[in-house]
Each structure stands twice: as structure tokens, then as C-alpha cells.
């Protein structure tokens, strides 16, 4: 009896030691994850003098709004090519437009693949899967050349329209529909005399709301963060057209800017919207990743 008691105790003790060790490791990892962003925030609340004189600091200061005002001032006199307001507006236009097209047309394509039976169904689906493999750089050279030839560079059309063809999203929606969309409803709607497209809009889409929601969020984040395609298309770097990542890039390569507080706040403002969205919707996002292996 005593022997068994000892073995149980030592096993329990071992498990507890391991748990404690793991917790310490996880806390350290948490700090590493959050520290860069925290320092970014802290430094964006300090004045440039403060950053230079006092080196690193972990406590926020009071210069947040002064730094923002400084970016506006420097932008007006032309020292920097950065404006949070313009950047937000531009990024929002592209992001919202692209996300809407992606979610709507992916749902429509998935609906077509699941609800209907037609000869080209399997080849079409395979084709969609294959498209997923092609890296964006491979098509981008030909893409920008083509846009140049038809005069669409320096506009937002090439940044929004292609979003309607998004293979991973179609894949995700199709999986979702196959497991939770009852095809009888379509039959019932036909008996009632509803047209096919109207069935899709009034019955199909509402039933897919969770999938639509998750994909809308991922699409938003992915489009907001997209730096490559706008850099390729918006060739004349006109300030009134720049997206947020491009504005951050212009701050980086700016030699005339010596105000460190302004640099930090420029970076901070660029990620603020995504961070806010993440704070509100983190559980949905993390669950969505587990479900679908979503590409960023």
C-alpha cells in the first residue's frame, strides 16, 4: 500500500513539475510575442528626444497625440509621404471591395459546384485546386505588364477585381457546404417557383453565414496586409493613392525624417485597425484557422 502511494505521489509530482516548467516556457513565449508590439506602442507615445536620450523604456509616455499631430504637420510641408487618414481610406476601399468580391463570388462558385450536377464539375474543381499552387510572383510580372498595356496601372481596379477568383476560399466554402447544407431546401425552393439565383441569394447565402463571416475576416486581414501587389501596380508613388503598408515603406526609406517618435507612430497606426479587429474577433479567427488551414 505504501509503495503504491509513493509511486502515485512521485508521478503526480513529476506531472506537476512538468506543468510548471511548461507554463514558464509559455509565459516566456507570450512575452516574446507581445514585446515587439508593446515596445512599438510605448515608443510611439514618446517624443523623439526622449527615445534618443533615454534608450529603451517600458512605460508609455504622453506624446501619443503630439506625435500624430507631427505626422500631419510633416506631411503638409512635404517632408514625409505619409498620412494616416489617406492611408486608412485607400486601404479600406481596396480591402472592403476585394473582401466583398472574394466572399460573394467564392460562395457563388462553391454553391454552383455543390448544388448542381454537370459534366464539367469535377474538372472545374480540380482546375481550381491546381490554381492555388501558383505563387503570386509568377503571375505578377505578366499581370502588371498586361495592366500597363490596357492602362489600368495606377488605378485600384487591378487590386480589387482579381479578388473575385480566390481558390482557397472556394475550397473552404465547398467543404462547409458539403457538410452542412441540405440540398432538399433547393428542391423545395424550386417547387415554390423561386428562380435559381434568387434561391442562392435568399436561402443559400444566409445559411452559409458562419463560413462567410470567417472568410470575410481573413480576407480583410489578408488584403489590408497586402504590400506586394499594390507596390507592383501603383507605379507612380502618388501619396493620395498609397495603401497603408506602402506608406510605412515610404517612412522607412525617408532620409529627411529624423523624428523617431513619428516613425514609431507611423508604424503603430498602420497596424492599429488589424489589432483592434483581432482583439474583438480573436476566438473566431483562431477557430477558423484550425478548421480550414487558411492561407494568409
Amino acid at each position: 500500500m505504501t509503495k503504491n502511494g509513493n509511486i502515485n505521489d512521485s508521478y503526480a509530482a513529476k506531472v506537476r513539475m512538468k506543468s510548471i516548467g511548461v507554463m514558464i516556457f509559455l509565459i516566456a513565449l507570450t512575452i516574446i510575442c507581445l514585446l515587439p508590439i508593446y515596445i512599438l506602442f510605448v515608443n510611439s507615445t514618446r517624443s523623439s528626444q526622449n527615445i534618443i536620450n533615454e534608450g529603451i523604456s517600458f512605460l508609455p509616455n504622453g506624446h501619443f497625440f503630439k506625435n500624430i499631430k507631427e505626422t500631419i504637420r510633416l506631411d503638409e510641408i512635404g517632408t514625409i509621404n505619409y498620412s494616416a487618414a489617406v492611408g486608412y481610406r485607400n486601404s479600406a476601399i481596396i480591402t472592403i471591395g476585394a473582401s466583398f468580391l472574394t466572399v460573394f463570388f467564392s460562395a457563388m462558385t462553391a454553391y454552383g459546384l455543390v448544388v448542381y450536377d454537370f459534366k464539367a464539375k469535377t474538372p472545374a474543381y480540380t482546375a481550381i485546386l491546381l490554381v492555388m499552387m501558383v505563387p503570386v510572383q509568377v503571375t505578377s510580372v505578366g499581370f502588371v505588364q498586361f495592366m500597363n498595356q490596357i492602362g489600368l496601372t495606377d488605378t485600384y481596379w487591378p487590386l480589387i477585381l482579381p479578388a473575385a477568383a480566390a481558390p482557397p476560399i472556394v475550397f473552404y466554402m465547398r467543404q462547409y457546404m458539403k457538410s452542412s447544407f441540405p440540398l432538399d431546401i433547393v428542391e423545395a425552393a424550386r417547387i415554390d417557383g423561386t428562380g435559381e439565383f434568387r434561391t442562392f441569394l435568399t436561402i443559400g447565402l444566409p445559411m452559409m453565414k458562419p463560413a462567410l463571416g470567417v472568410q470575410a475576416i481573413f480576407s480583410f486581414i489578408s488584403n489590408w496586409n497586402n504590400f506586394y501587389t499594390p507596390s507592383m501596380i501603383l507605379i507612380s508613388r502618388e501619396e493620395k493613392q498609397l495603401t497603408m503598408p506602402m506608406m510605412v515603406s515610404s517612412i522607412l526609406s525617408n532620409d529627411k525624417l529624423s523624428d523617431l517618435g513619428v516613425r514609431y507612430i507611423a508604424i503603430f497606426l498602420s497596424i492599429l485597425p488589424v489589432i483592434i479587429i483581432y482583439c474583438i474577433l480573436s476566438r473566431t479567427i483562431v477557430d477558423g484557422v484550425a478548421e480550414g488551414g487558411v492561407k494568409e
Binding site: 462558385t109 454552383g112 454537370f118 509568377v138 503571375t139 505578366g142 477585381l161 482579381p162 473575385a164 477568383a165
Partner: peptide
């Protein structure tokens, strides 16, 4: 209803041909 299947997936493939397949061949 097969023709509806084609109609529903058509926009995807149109956009794909214009903005991805043609550029790929262009590359």
C-alpha cells in the same frame, strides 16, 4: 438544372482567365 451550374461558376473562371491565366501566359 445543369446549365445553372455552369452559370454559377462562370464569374470565377472569367476573372481567373483575365487576371491570372492570361498574365501567367504573359509571364
Amino acid at each position: 438544372y445543369a446549365k445553372y451550374g455552369y452559370m454559377f461558376i462562370l464569374p470565377f473562371f472569367i476573372i481567373y482567365f483575365i487576371f491570372q491565366l492570361f498574365p501567367l501566359l504573359n509571364t
